[in-house]
Design a protein around this nucleic acid. Structure first.
Lengths: 366, 366
DNA sequence: AGCCCAACTGTATGCGCTTACAGTTGTACT
DNA sequence: AGTACAACTGTAAGCGCATACAGTTGGGCT
């Protein structure tokens, strides 16, 4: 097996050094090198030192590919979520190579940021948990047509895959799930093929709506999200449950799209102001608050507003936003936990975890 | 080479299927399977169909490890950044397995969110660019002592590594850089061993400070960030440059730590109110705005406030925050570009890219 | 019919590790 | 001194794929 060409130690290496290079320099076998790296105590100190010296000297970094191949596991977990597809100005080359400074005036007429930080938080949770369990995290965003290729690619690289709801068609997921465990986030699907982690959407929305009704409000408006969102469906369901349980309540239902702009648009056009506007998510609610500010309508005195998600921006809005906080970081962590649990014991039943939410009362609906 | 045990097609496979399984079912050699996957046109259609059928039937997903090992590249790029170490409640197990709903009142006395969204944005940019160039993205956060192990681990998994400034000691970086290209973000170091991508900190801060001075303000306060931050150092430098160029300006320098809480604390304690408070970043400035609101001090009438970063929250604060927008998404993208450029041509000179910034005038300092 | 070449397919090797298993050494015993 | 065994270390066999190279096949030509 020693057909490998001997390399010069001190010459600049064209290729990255391998165990063989290290072994040669330390005058041991490659097995010992491997041991020093994976299980240092199983090697005599003197030998270990020689190996470590060689590692340092050569700038050796073990190839995770070879490791993964030999050990049959990658120690990586994948996280797949809906893509931030089209970012303004993402068209290829950077505008300037060596920067200047320009000055612009932003009078708030432009589009507010549409991105929501939901995924960032989930990602953060996932990253934390993955690290604690000794896994690296690979992230990928789903984008249009190439989705299938990407998912397959990622699936080949990881030991487990967490997927945000509705990002990937069931069929593809099923294909992938034959190879590695898959957990679906934020959606309780009918099928029970995979593990699921979601939050208590319906009960949360029900609880905050009941709080609204508890203030005496009877004329409500509900601004929903996109119809294809399972989250939205559940929240609407919770809203209905609360309303159905109360006397003499009138409801106007408006379809939004979870975005801040859309919330603002809708609120700007309201003619008969309700006593309370219940929004399916925070971004929408923040848009509503923007609109009310512009229209000089006082929140909560003239109309109360509530959101759902608990994004950070709601803590600092004017007025501060009453909302249902869902544990986004926990969601990410739970996903990793579910995955590692299944890796430890593949025979586990598919489980469906529902995380608790918290109604947070702030100024917009005290 | 056919020592591998034949497997039952329809039986539930204990292990993931491999090229061998696919080849067997499609009655071709593994080479053809590989060809179908990598270069479909080089195989006769009829054969291709058989292979694809087998792939589908068996739920085959190619192992990226084996691929990477054979092809000597992973097509993954790593992103390493300072960790979100200690998240509240990150201690192991989840509290509830099947959630309820609780209600709390948030009267704004608690700690505001300390996290800043800088990294999320950079990550987003990196993800986008990586995807466009056919790379997957692996993320890892640096945490205390295990940093070295993590970096080494990641380095073994990727073709290139982007590192946020000061996350990793130079020595470690140098070790890793012997194997793969490394680009350092948001820091122009003295050494020119690696590629660098950063933003125009000093000129940006200088420009916004000059704007402040242009309003006639002469008594300024500057709330800096932590001393070990290169960003902070450059910004302070820019501030000084602007101030030095003006007549009769008095400056009070206070040391903050880039956090919102700290900004608020500092602003709550100010006795002799300056005409303007220039903050080293947005979070700090937002904290200052919080404090001013609480103290019923009008911004910008009684005191002007400026930030630096251009985070989304600044667009919606009360009053809206004047700041220097740095292209965080672009930063991430540029990092990936630098990396891929070097992968394409390893002989490239170490380059140092400086991205332009933009002064954004809003209500807090019109 | 015989030849040549394009188009396709198969064989065999090795990528850089981990790890079962088989030595090898040193030492505590009998 | 001889034996047994613990503590190390080395040998060798893959892990699943890509790919250079060597067939094989089937026209189109002469």
């Amino acid at each position: 097996m020693q057909t490998r060409g001997t390399r010069e130690d001190d010459a600049i290496m064209a290729k990255a050094p391998t165990v063989y290079d290290v072994a040669e320099r330390a005058r041991v076998s490659i097995a010992s090198v491997s041991r020093v790296l994976r299980n240092p105590d199983s090697v005599k100190e003197q030998t270990r030192e020689r190996v470590l010296e060689a590692v340092r000297h050569l700038g050796y970094v073990p190839s995770a590919n070879a490791r993964g191949l030999a050990a049959r596991r990658t120690n990586v977990i994948g996280l797949f979520f809906p893509g931030h597809d089209d970012v303004a100005g993402s068209d290829g080359r950077l505008v300037a190579a060596s920067g200047g400074v320009t000055v612009v005036r932003d009078d708030a007429t432009g589009d507010p940021e549409t991105h929501n930080y939901y995924f960032d938080e989930v990602l953060r949770g996932a990253e934390i948990e993955a690290w604690r369990r000794g896994f690296a995290l690979m992230v990928a965003a789903g984008r249009g047509a190439s989705r299938e290729a990407i998912v397959n690619d990622i699936a080949g690289r990881v030991d487990g895959l967490a997927v945000l709801a509705r990002t990937v068609p069931d069929e593809l997921l099923a294909h992938v799930a034959r190879r590695i465990p898959v957990v679906v986030l934020a959606a309780t699907r009918g099928t029970d093929e995979f593990d699921h982690v979601s939050v208590n959407n319906a009960p949360g929305m029900r609880a905050i709506t009941e709080h609204v009704l508890g203030t005496g409000a009877r004329r409500l408006m509900y601004i929903a999200g996109p119809e294809d969102s399972p989250d939205d469906r559940e929240r609407l369901e919770g809203f209905r449950a609360a309303v159905d349980g109360a006397e003499g309540v009138s409801v106007e239902l408006v379809r939004g799209d979870f975005s801040r702009v859309r919330g603002r648009e809708i609120a700007l056009r309201i003619e008969a102001m309700p006593e309370a506007i219940v929004c399916a998510n925070d971004q929408t609610a923040l848009g509503v608050l923007d609109a009310m500010g512009r229209r000089s309508i006082s929140v909560p005195d003239d109309v109360m507003v509530t959101g759902f998600d608990g994004i950070a921006a709601g803590r600092h809005s004017t007025p501060r936003l009453t909302t249902v906080h869902q544990p986004m970081v926990e969601l990410g962590r739970a996903a990793i936990q579910a995955l590692t649990a299944r890796l430890d014991d593949p025979s586990l039943e598919a489980q469906s975890l529902v995380l608790p939410v918290q109604v947070v009362l702030r100024d917009s609906c005290p």
